[in-house]
Computed example of a mutant assay.
Amino acid sequence: MYKDTIDFIKTLYPRQDFIPLHEPRFIGREKEYLTDAIDSTFVSSVGAYVNKFEDEMADLTGARYAVAIANGTGALHIALKLAGVSSGHEVITQAFTFVATANAISYLGAKPVFTDVSLKTMGMCPEKLEAFLSENAEQVGDDLINKVTGKKISACVPMHTYGFPCEIDRIVSVCNHYSIPVIEDAAESLGSHYKDKHTGTYGIMGTFSFNGNKTLTCGGGGAIVTDDEEIAKKAKHLTTQAKVPHRWEFRHDEIGYNYRMPNINAALACAQLEQLDSFIKNKRELGLCYADFFIQQKEMKFFTENEGSKANYWLNVLIFKDLMARNDFLDETNADGVMTRPAWILMNELDMFSDCQHDGLANSKWLEERLVNIPSSVRIDSL
């Protein structure tokens, strides 16, 4: 049924018997920088490449500061802590996300509250967020309290889904009205922009991931970006076991975390950053190829960036007419050596988050039943 689509995808990735969803490309100075890091003997959380990577991430995003973290989940965990999230609090986020978003909230003893996404962006819907807060939130002294649960709402975490920017300016505007700090989960959106600003720079902090399947990878790795100097300094301190600087003493002034990115990973990340522009150009060209092909298809629609945004097209997205068509496509493509994947199971449908409050999540459920990711790797033949 989907042979034409499978054949087309195979023409985009010739000479591959199996086409993965998103594989890394190490075609720059990765080996050179890794060798240099190894020869320096600084392979853990101190080294020249860590500093270089932080400077380059700040330059790339336009943020004043960037802090290198061991992974994206750890970055979000620390960002939430620095925003004031604590045990017994609630954090508004989306159910249509990777589990790390909800897990990071839970690490602090807080609980996620899920509002719906927009079908235009696949990210948090500002109208649904406003409606939820208008109905459920009330100011009690200095705290914003959820009238249903009686708990403090202490942060909001929208996610730029699959690299497509959400309407982050409108989300921040809603949250500012209620004095809710916004932390952007930009794990998937390195190189994506909304209204000429890089994702991750609208909220008080943004967090990124450099896992092996991301547009830029250093095996693991993450980062926090912010314009707040105090937050940046505190993030570095907490992620380095809260060690008080001293030439020889091991003194720690609070509970810290072993979350700093190792120099050897940063070396890999620096080499990848040098290629990011060409990677994004290549991926956006792939998106155009898909858009041209799928405009003729009746069973599915290709998802494109929303007005005002420039997406990195980290993972390309098809939206099918119904669940049966989606499942047929998943079966046929994966059986023929073309890796495709459905959307994540909604967070509120997982056992550990099944009792979390939500707003009905109509759009999230609709997407969950119809969405498929298709191969999105940088095409070497097109570089």
Rank of each mutant, 00 (worst) to 15 (best):
residue 10 K to E: 09
residue 12 L to K: 09
residue 16 Q to N: 11
residue 21 L to A: 05
residue 23 E to A: 13
residue 35 T to N: 15
residue 46 V to C: 07
residue 58 A to H: 04
residue 70 A to G: 04
residue 70 A to R: 15
residue 75 A to R: 02
residue 80 L to F: 07
residue 84 G to R: 12
residue 91 V to E: 01
residue 92 I to A: 08
residue 96 F to S: 00
residue 97 T to E: 01
residue 99 V to L: 05
residue 103 N to M: 15
residue 112 P to Y: 01
residue 116 D to E: 04
residue 122 M to L: 14
residue 131 A to F: 01
residue 135 E to S: 13
residue 140 V to N: 11
residue 141 G to F: 08
residue 153 I to K: 06
residue 154 S to G: 09
residue 158 P to V: 06
residue 165 P to L: 06
residue 169 D to L: 10
residue 173 S to M: 09
residue 173 S to E: 15
residue 173 S to F: 03
residue 173 S to Q: 14
residue 176 N to T: 11
residue 183 I to W: 02
residue 196 D to C: 13
residue 203 G to Q: 05
residue 206 G to L: 07
residue 217 T to H: 10
residue 225 V to Y: 01
residue 227 D to Q: 13
residue 232 A to Q: 04
residue 238 L to D: 03
residue 247 R to C: 12
residue 251 R to E: 12
residue 252 H to C: 13
residue 254 E to T: 14
residue 267 A to Y: 05
residue 275 Q to A: 09
residue 286 L to Y: 08
residue 290 Y to C: 02
residue 305 E to Q: 13
residue 322 D to Q: 08
residue 337 G to C: 11
residue 346 L to V: 06
residue 347 M to Y: 01
residue 351 D to Q: 11
residue 358 H to D: 14
residue 362 A to G: 00
residue 364 S to D: 14
residue 372 V to G: 05
residue 375 P to W: 06
residue 382 S to A: 15
residue 383 L to S: 03
